[in-house]
């Protein structure tokens, strides 16, 4: 048995749960981006998805949502196939994945979180706009409602994306690198929003690249390096051993010491 296997939490995967992945693999052009990942997010957990660049963190989120095809295995969201439960799942994509030069205001973007409720061809009405404005208020962006999104700073754009996910009023939230390129003020807003969601009993998965802050922000972790290196409560899995495993021994002892693990 290869050493990394025993680090994986091999407790039987429960069939029910906010997010369950079993043997999940994603392959792009013949190259595996994610390999045979088993993971079950505990209900009400704040899970950090951690790993180096190219570890398959985004692929994991997208595969769980059914946005990229599975090469093997399966995933369920809220106990159902991703295609069926999407109405109850909020998503914050990577900032680089959209065209920020597109002519839309912050309010327009947040209202997109409510399009499903409107359904095909029903126009955005006043009530939708009011609801979207309330969500912008929750992330401290109400004053920027009419600002074109391209003119906002990185942190502000991220807050708009968060507001859009909040507007969905989902039970499970998946966020892809929401903290990347974010100013301190926006970071605080994001943190308190995460804690607020947890307090309301929601489950949240956050792709995160900053090892320094990960133990403070999240109570659970999924450590990825194409394979799942470890998963479970933060205190148990965020160890020098798992991190060296995930980062392929590229972390210097001083770095590990700084992480105090």
């Amino acid at each position: 048995m290869s050493p990394q296997i025993h680090l994986v939490n091999r407790a039987p995967i429960p069939a029910q749960g906010p997010l369950v992945a079993h043997g999940l693999s994603v392959v792009y052009n013949g190259k595996p981006a994610l390999w045979n990942v088993d993971f079950a997010a505990p209900a009400g957990a704040l899970v950090g998805v951690i790993g180096p660049n190219g570890a398959g963190k985004s692929s994991f989120i997208k595969a769980a949502l059914g946005l990229v095809p599975w090469a093997s295995g399966w995933a369920t969201l809220l106990g159902e196939a991703p295609g069926k439960s999407r109405a109850r799942v909020g998503y914050v994509p990577q900032r680089a994945s959209v065209d920020w030069d597109f002519p839309a205001s912050a309010l327009d973007v947040v209202a997109m979180g409510l399009y499903r409720k409107l359904g095909w061809f029903r126009p955005v009405n006043r009530r939708t706009k009011e609801a979207a404005r309330a969500c912008l208020e929750r992330v401290g962006m109400a004053d920027f409602a009419d600002r074109p999104i391209g003119q906002l700073s990185g942190g502000q754009q991220q807050r708009v994306f968060l507001a859009r996910a909040l507007a969905q009023d989902a039970d499970l939230y998946l966020m892809d690198e929401p903290f990347a390129g974010v100013d301190a003020a926006s970071e605080q807003v994001l943190i308190s929003a995460l804690l607020g969601l947890q307090a309301a009993g929601k489950t949240v998965l956050v792709v995160h690249h900053d090892l320094q802050t990960a133990p403070d922000y999240f109570d659970h972790a999924l450590i990825l390096a194409t394979r799942a290196v470890a998963s479970g409560p933060m205190a148990e899995v965020f160890t020098a051993e798992t991190l060296q495993e995930a980062y392929g021994g590229r972390l210097a002892p001083s770095q590990l010491a700084a992480l105090a693990v």
């Binding site: 693999s25 392959v27 013949g30 595996p32 390999w35 194409t226 394979r227």
Partner: peptide, 8 residues
């Protein structure tokens, strides 16, 4: 599709 994928 290729019949067997090489693991990473």
């Amino acid at each position: 599709a290729p019949t067997a994928l090489e693991p990473p």
